[in-house]
């Protein structure tokens, strides 16, 4: 059994149904989909029991009917992408900064780009967007078109 398969079976054994999907895409690439309620437990398990210390980044995705928050963790050269499904009517998720402090900036980015509330995050001010950025305008959401972004930024600046 390869290291990748071993990791997937460990996760399945520990979390059972709370892991919605787990697959090895290719050598050193694992994608795991988890329920939002299990998200932090999975990260904590990977940190404390498996020994993952490095989070490469956290990708936010607007998948039209829901949001996805995907931390890419690095473990012995394997990228473990843990996908948490976040419903659009209640866009919030637990922070993982208390488990992996290096996730601080990445969570801020997900918050400001997608409007997903990171519960328990110490500082949800802007990271990349300016301080006078229009309230409630989340640029990487799919329903925000380029024209609208341009109009709102220029209008509110003038």
């Amino acid at each position: 059994m390869t290291l990748e398969e071993e990791l997937v079976s460990k996760l399945k054994e520990r979390f059972g149904d709370r892991i919605l999907e787990a697959k090895v895409q290719r050598a050193r690439r694992i994608f795991v989909t988890v329920d939002r309620s299990a998200y932090k437990d999975v990260i904590r398990f990977l940190r404390n029991d498996v020994g993952v210390t490095h989070v490469s980044t956290i990708s936010g995705v607007d998948a039209i009917d829901h949001f996805e928050v995907i931390p890419h963790l690095s473990y012995k050269g394997i990228v473990v992408s843990v996908r948490a499904i976040v419903p659009k009517d209640k866009p919030e998720i637990d922070t993982i900064t208390d488990v992996i402090p290096g996730a601080l900036f990445y969570e801020k980015e997900v918050h400001e780009m997608f409007g997903i509330d990171i519960k328990g995050h110490p500082d949800l001010t802007h990271l990349e967007l300016p301080d006078d950025w229009p309230e409630g305008l989340y640029p990487l959401r799919k329903d925000v078109k380029l024209e609208e972004l341009f109009r709102r930024i220029t209008k509110e600046r003038d």
Binding site: H126, L127, E128, L129, P130, P139, L140, L146, L149
Partner: peptide, 11 residues
């Protein structure tokens, strides 16, 4: 940071 955010991901 963010003084030169260019929005490349959206573009």
């Amino acid at each position: 940071i963010g003084y030169n955010h260019r929005g490349i991901e959206k573009a």
